[in-house]
Design a protein around this nucleic acid. Sequence first.
DNA 1: CGGCGATATGACGGTTCGGTGACAACGGTT
DNA 2: AACCGTTGTCACCGAACCGTCATATCGCCG
Lengths: 232, 232
Amino acid sequence: MQMQGTAKPLVLVVDDEPAQRALLSYNLKAAGFRVATAGDGEEAMLAIAEDAPDVILLDWMLPRLSGLEACRQIKASAGGRQSAVIMVSARSEEADRVRGLETGADDYIVKPYSVAELIARVKANLRRVRPAATGAVLEAGDIRLDTESYRVTRAGKSLHLGPTEFRLLAALMERQGKVWTREALLDRVWGRDIYIDTRTVDVHIGRLRKALCTHGDPDPIRTVRGAGYAMG
Amino acid sequence: MQMQGTAKPLVLVVDDEPAQRALLSYNLKAAGFRVATAGDGEEAMLAIAEDAPDVILLDWMLPRLSGLEACRQIKASAGGRQSAVIMVSARSEEADRVRGLETGADDYIVKPYSVAELIARVKANLRRVRPAATGAVLEAGDIRLDTESYRVTRAGKSLHLGPTEFRLLAALMERQGKVWTREALLDRVWGRDIYIDTRTVDVHIGRLRKALCTHGDPDPIRTVRGAGYAMG
DNA sequence: CGGCGATATGACGGTTCGGTGACAACGGTT
DNA sequence: AACCGTTGTCACCGAACCGTCATATCGCCG
């Protein structure tokens, strides 16, 4: 498996049947994902708060908190908005599909589904949520970052970045405009449970800027005082 | 559905049957979208180059350039990557769906589809492409405040605010019309257990006003004598 | 109109915050 | 061993920002 910027994508499986969870976990792990599981909507919210997943597979029928309501809550929460939600349901009625999608779900799969299609849909949704994890080429202005070949160019000219600066740039480019706090960047770029001075981020931002502006180009990174950094 | 400020989303319909194009155009326009059409893959590429659509409905069976190949080209082109591609196909085989998704399509709809579901899917995909419409943005009159990118604009012009002024404005905008006492603002903006002269709020309101009115715009903040401040 | 309390504003010192150069530690390579 | 690129930390500086005060202005009341 190629070194892809950051850690493997995380998929959260929400289903009340342990057998289903096990089945999905197995197949998703085989496809190269990290997997978390939850048995109902409340567990799901906890899991999301703990570690925001990239994709959430949400069963329609759940005890206590229905899948639909869980979806609404997820999309209303701060952490959940950046996850893709795929509703999984035995209800093939078109009206249900429409309702699911209108509630904020990003996709809708009808049981019985094939594992291959499910994986394909997870990947399709992942492409949008975390392009860098899928071997995509990110673009921002005249900067191109190829997560597969590990190469960065600006205005056609190739740039040399260290691994950390590369991942930092990838994170910033993944969601242009979004302001990342130093803590969020440490989480995403350096790793979840690592303990490093937040000021270190500043230093790396500085190094990244120097690398990006070697040819006199304007600085593409925006500093937001009291908040963090953003691209564009 | 709120279409705040920005133009209506553009949907490109690619189908070789004029009747299909007409049907889809009609329904999409009725749902509030702008619509462009193309009869084959090459026309589609031209249309994309001319005006990048937000969502592309791509028929699987196309003359000359197949839908699958067209999808590949779209996703490989610079402009196409920021559009969502929905494959529309009569082929319900699961293998086809997987192929479509793996080629880079964002979604896959099987004919015959219901118009309601198609619209729902278009909207769901639109949410992804244009995250601006997802609610991280506060608006009041001609003032826009984006809590994710920490950007504030008035009548399109970008403004510069300090962190405290930003939070102050966000608080005021969050509940337009509500009159905040100085104490409440201190709590909300500065922090719960901090002790600061309430007059300081006045100063920051003043600074905020100055920033908001640099271009001679009217003052959007209302002073309520003896009570506090309010927006609008 | 005059007075009084409340609010607006300009100025100022202190503090915090971010940028940057220097440096030592580390691992890999020659 | 010597070298090299990378990385995390620190110290220092300048600039932005903040809170306070003094003063000017406003709005309401008699």
